[in-house]
Design a protein around this nucleic acid. Structure first.
Length: 287
DNA sequence: ATGCAGGGACGAT
DNA sequence: ATCGTCCCTGCA
């Protein structure tokens, strides 16, 4: 185990609200990553990984184990609070999600809570995802955009999506037709990629920023949800400004997010994740 | 038991 | 720029 990774904690990372389809069975965690099930468990003071079907080494990609956490921590640690949190939660990492899965997941996330998001995605997976067997148990791959796009809005509603069904349809269509070119978005700048995402019905500022951060390599993205808004109000008054509240207008979102990105720097998204995790911990949330 | 919150976005004023 | 509304569920 390389010393740089010695503090990495897969369990904390998968339970930090950035990724949804994980469940613990016995001593092991099983997660859905597009077409593969990834399993991990503690071993020798670190973590061992297995994938179904076999996809060796995918954990480096998924958990961003190639990121240079020392320079990232040095960069975002210029802020005293984030510095403290990086030391307090040394195992927390951003994850690199599959873009299609990430888009569909966060479109489901609007105006609801994490348990509900998990329920919606679980139902979609069981209904539209391919079966995968792992350790004698049955799992489901995350449904492809194409498979979801074949369903009607009413059928998606029946999965407990509510009014989000319409937004899911617009997103799956954009992905399935190639109108949204995911590989291209990875190469594009933050602004260019965000502009493309915002064209899709159901994707606004916050959800676009989550997609950019968690699946499109935009580590400078700084999503602001109610929890981050609370953190900004409580600890970063000069960024929040006097008129900000927990609910941001579109204009406020843009101004405050831009200010935060400038303040925290090119890894602002990492700072955001430490703050988010801390606010949730502090509130005693159990995801 | 009615109200409200929960990783928001959209359309009408 | 504000404001009501959207489907659903758990919890006070």
């Amino acid at each position: 185990m390389r010393p740089l990774l010695s503090h990495f904690d897969a369990e904390t990372s998968v339970n930090s609200g950035q990724s949804f389809l994980w469940e613990k069975k016995g001593d092991a965690w099983y997660g859905v990553h597009a077409d593969t099930i990834i399993k991990f468990y503690k071993r020798d003071g670190g973590f061992a990984f297995e994938t179904f079907p076999e996809n060796r080494g995918i954990e480096r990609e998924m958990f961003r184990l190639d990121d240079d956490m020392e320079s990232i921590a040095a960069e975002i640690g210029r802020d005293p609070l984030v510095q403290k949190l990086a030391l307090q939660y040394p195992g927390l990492r951003l994850m690199r999600q599959d873009p299609s899965q990430c888009i569909i997941s966060f479109v489901c996330a609007s105006n609801t809570n994490i348990p509900m998001i998990r329920r919606m995605l679980g139902t979609l997976s069981r209904k539209y995802g391919e079966k995968i067997t792992a350790d004698g148990m049955q799992f489901h791959a995350f449904p492809s955009a194409r498979a979801l796009d074949r369903a009607t809005e009413a059928e998606l509603r029946a999965c407990g999506l509510g009014y989000r069904a319409k937004a899911i349809k617009s997103a799956t269509k954009a992905i399935a037709t190639g109108a949204l070119d995911l590989d291209q978005l990875k190469k594009a700048s933050y602004d260019e990629a965000k502009e493309e995402l915002l064209k899709i019905y159901g994707i606004g500022n916050k959800i676009a920023d989550c997609i950019l951060l968690f699946s499109l390599e935009k580590l400078d993205s700084f999503p602001i949800d109610v929890w981050i808004a609370r953190a900004l109000l409580g600890h970063y008054g000069w960024l929040a400004g006097r008129k900000m509240s927990e609910k941001l207008t579109e204009r406020q979102y843009e101004d405050v997010s831009a200010a935060a990105r400038k303040y925290f720097g090119r890894y602002a998204g990492y700072a955001q994740q430490f703050l988010y995790y801390h606010m949730r911990q502090d509130a005693g949330k159990k995801w």
